[in-house]
Design a protein around this nucleic acid. Sequence first.
DNA 1: TTTACATATTCCCATATGGGTATACGATGG
DNA 2: CCATCGTATACCCATATGGGAATATGTAAA
Lengths: 118, 118
Amino acid sequence: MARAATTTDAFNAVAEPRRREILDLLAGGECVVNDLVTRLGLAQPQVSKHLKVLREVGLVQVREEGRQRRYRLNGRPLQAIHDWVKKYEQTWQDRFDALDVVLEELIEEEQSNGRDDE
Amino acid sequence: MARAATTTDAFNAVAEPRRREILDLLAGGECVVNDLVTRLGLAQPQVSKHLKVLREVGLVQVREEGRQRRYRLNGRPLQAIHDWVKKYEQTWQDRFDALDVVLEELIEEEQSNGRDDE
DNA sequence: TTTACATATTCCCATATGGGTATACGATGG
DNA sequence: CCATCGTATACCCATATGGGAATATGTAAA
């Protein structure tokens, strides 16, 4: 098997920095494709392709308006990521790191001491 | 260019469900490779390969212990993901959705009204 | 020092990616 | 109706993925 499709879920869709950029832009409000092209400094076809991926995972919605397409953010699929990553939140707190260091020291101490002093 | 390497950053590393599973297991405490193999029901080489990716983005640390390797979680690289996704948090709140609906209605109303009533 | 164990590495392969470029398509203006 | 605009799609390509299977490497046990 190869790598999972980018359209598999929000995790995969959002792994691409350009797509995160697009979402960041859309966070500021609805946007038309050409605006994105300009603001991203990326070629139009690639922007359309990224938008397609985002559409397929439900991260954006389109509204047709004459010959332009107005894209809008839909953050809901990001919740899965948030939920998953939130579990690890305390992991990078300073206090947790400090605890880590302490544990590390204890372990190393234990190792160099051998088992004879228990 | 092809897709960014899985080892590029935490976003890419964690897009793979198996690797998320591994981190979830390690969240319960240090673990030896064979334990992971058993608990994941995955072949040993693939587990080692996933662990390599996680190592390269700094999500896990290894400690050699005789012929086994004890892996430990290091959540810090997840902070980048958390920070990015957190910005969108209110996006999926119910109240925000409700607001969305209202905006949608306003927009459609405006469109069908034309501009003559201003 | 041979054997068994724990883990990593290598090789093979089907697959989809993301950028580039060209082109299709629908809407609009002249 | 023809040209143009806004967007999407198709095609080409180099690349790395993830699983499978075999093998290498290093440590401990017999």
